[in-house]
Design a protein around this nucleic acid. Structure first.
Ligand code: MN
Ligand code: MN
Ligand code: ZN
Ligand code: ZN
Lengths: 138, 138
DNA sequence: TTTCCATTTTATAAATATTATAATCTAATA
DNA sequence: TATTAGATTATAATATTTATAAAATGGAAA
């Protein structure tokens, strides 16, 4: 059996063609796509695909820790299949989101936490990407 | 003239009653309110207030660096009038957003940046707040 | 292999969130 | 006080997300 399928089998969820199509699109995808982008891509091969299914599948995958929902774009939800701990560089011009593979161990003193139990962190670095910098030299 | 009004005057924008009402609601507000919350509050005093005005005013204030739009809640935009550099503790149970007044100087090695010009960062710490921790002891 | 059924997909509607438009109104200036 | 650029309102349109129920089907059991 194909390796990828075996991997998804282990999730103990039904492997429907629609789910496989979405999983294949997400596999290795570094674009942090929105629901709209996912829908547009997979509906090319699955013309009957509906937005509801994309939402259903994504919610299921998030629940099973196969993708992360990221709150960087204030306009829409974006999804990230790259599950290792990592952070993001966000271009304030073109809104591109670039992975940053580093692990920062950021300590917060007890007295600043006010009883908050820390479980992790995510850093959004903002600035201007190489491409956008290349343009408008004003 | 009232101090607050003088401060807003310096923005060089028209000081309408609606804008003042929204500004007064935001002043010192640590709740990171959504458009809906802002609308519900100010429309109590301004029954003719419309959502469009709330969106208009907030967009203007963001443009003039009086409030920040924060992308923490994936479901809706939230706004923060606290303009000093700070970070947030986010409760994964009740979704409360708590200010963390610290300045982390996080260095990222050049080779990881790939031409990205760094301008700043925002850290979202996630975990469980004191109140939610107090409940369900399972 | 065939049957069965819990789960999923689809189609659709509804709810929620946001933006666009144009007529009306008003704060600021002279 | 009159003028006007800019703001508000009402409304419609668009975009995003969730809810619902009927139809379809993947996977287990026979
Ligand atoms: Mn990523
Ligand atoms: Mn804050
Ligand atoms: Zn860019
Ligand atoms: Zn909480």
């Amino acid at each position: 059996m194909e390796n990828r399928i075996k991997k998804y089998k282990s999730l103990k969820i039904k492997l429907t063609p629609q789910r496989l199509a979405i999983l294949n699109y997400l596999e290795g995808n570094k674009m942090h796509p929105s629901v709209e982008q996912i829908f547009k891509y997979v509906s090319r091969r699955f013309p009957s695909m509906s937005y509801a299914t994309v939402y259903n599948v994504l919610n299921t995958l998030v629940k099973h820790n196969v993708v992360k929902e990221i709150s960087i774009d204030p306009d829409k939800k974006r999804f990230d299949p790259y599950m290792s701990t990592h952070h993001h560089l966000v271009c304030i011009k073109c809104r591109k989101i670039i992975d940053l593979d580093m692990d920062f161990s950021i300590g917060v003193p007890e007295d600043k936490l006010a009883g908050f139990t820390m479980m992790g962190n995510h850093i959004e670095f903002y600035g201007v990407c190489a491409q956008c910098r290349g343009k408008d030299k004003d």
